[in-house]
Amino acid sequence: MSELSEHVVSPKTNVAVWLVLLVLTGVTTSIAFIDLGPLNTIVALVIATCKALLVVLVFMHVKYASDKLVKVVVISAVFFLLLLLGLSLADYSTRML
């Protein structure tokens, strides 16, 4: 294995991701002014998650990581975060106080 085996992302890919991130920022702000009922929050969070995924996969090179251990750490960190948020909300959102 060569010592220079690191994946180098092309400027084209980086700039494309950057443009998509900027467009999604504009979209999320504009959609917030349209009344979608409870969907407003869901749409905002879905857009934020798409942006976060783009940053993690391309900018943070997780998509190109040769080391599977890095992917395991990323997925398990997100899993435990969702466990924290999911179980807390499962409790608080079903209480009849």
Binding site: T25, T28, A32, F33, N40, L45, A48
Partner: peptide
């Protein structure tokens, strides 16, 4: 950003 700024802008 969406959680703090965009809660109820409609």
């Amino acid at each position: 950003f969406p959680l703090l700024y965009l809660i109820d802008r409609k």
